[in-house]
């Protein structure tokens, strides 16, 4: 019984880091630009396909593919901002939702044509570590380590660097930041770049563990929305914390009740959050 408990906690933490990282890109874009990225799911899948493609074409370690995909995500985020998102920042909220929904459809169909509808996966061969009946997967350890590292980097950047202060100033009051000499357009572009870079990174990491397909992003984006709302919109630390909570709930529901109810429990948490703490766990905390 103790082994089951320990394994359940380990499973939950591992998936929780992935949920947290996936939600972080979403919460960052919302936090900085107040845009709800409806293309989050397809972008996660794009990250997975990017890592897969590098792995297949270059026959290199999948981690290199994931790194390259994340860099591509940074560039894509900047280009997307310059080409499209800058117009949406001041547009009515509904317009931005519709445009990003359109982006998600374009991405999905592009992936469908490039990689076919067949589910794909990266056959990794990382070792598994056993301690009695408890096992720890090497692939999941790597995913968790990268997720923790990315989260820490983001939080340190936001909290203790000049650029982070500029971002926070822009988030608090765009007009005041402009008057202080901040080029908010560049701040938004960098925000979009980092947000989409993180999203593609989470997709690449996901491909180490799970199969993926062009239309497979929906479930991850739904979990991301739950994580973002629970962790407080725009708060990366809250996002990581919420990811861990949802991951543990998923794991405990599956191990001690039934996996059938796992999505329902996640949405129940969403409903309870909206009812009793609509600002999320980190509301009122800087």
């Amino acid at each position: 019984m103790l082994e089951l408990l320990i394994q359940t906690i380990i499973n939950g933490l591992f998936i929780g880091f992935l949920f947290g990282l996936a939600g972080m890109g979403l919460t960052l874009i919302f936090g900085i630009m107040k845009l709800l990225n409806f293309a989050q799911g397809p972008m996660i899948m794009l990250g997975a396909y990017g890592a897969f493609w590098v792995y297949v074409l270059l026959s290199v370690d999948p981690m290199l593919g994931i790194l390259m995909t994340a860099i591509f995500g940074l560039i894509l985020g900047a280009l997307l901002y310059r080409g499209l998102l800058f117009k949406l920042v001041q547009a009515p909220a509904l317009a931005s939702l519709l445009v990003l929904f359109g982006v998600s459809m374009i991405l999905e169909n592009t992936m469908l044509n490039l990689w076919s509808p067949n589910p794909r996966s990266i056959p990794v061969d990382y070792p598994t570590f056993s301690f009695g009946l408890v096992t720890i997967s090497g692939a999941r350890l790597i995913v968790s380590a990268v997720a923790i590292l990315a989260s820490m980097l983001l939080m340190v950047t936001l909290k203790w660097t000049t650029f982070g202060r500029i971002i926070r100033a822009t988030v608090q009051d765009r007009n005041a930041a402009t008057l202080m000499g901040v080029d908010v357009t560049n701040v938004y572009m960098v925000g979009s770049s980092i947000g989409i870079g993180l999203t593609l990174l989470s997709g690449g990491l996901l491909a180490l563990i799970y199969p993926f397909e062009p239309f497979g992003g929906l479930q991850y984006s739904l979990y991301s929305f739950v994580v973002v709302v629970l962790g407080t919109l725009g708060n990366p630390l809250g996002c990581l914390l919420a990811g861990l909570i949802i991951g543990l709930l998923h794991s405990f529901t599956g191990s001690y009740w039934t996996l059938n109810m796992s999505p329902a429990v996640a949405y129940l948490i969403l409903v309870l959050t909206l009812l009793f703490r609509p600002g999320g766990l980190m509301a009122g905390r800087d």
Binding site: N11, Q219, S255, P263
Partner: peptide, 20 residues
Amino acid sequence: YETYHSAITDFSPLLTKVKG
């Protein structure tokens, strides 16, 4: 014997129980 939600991608909680 157990069923799971068909949209699930993370089977580790279920498999932990089956292993047990």
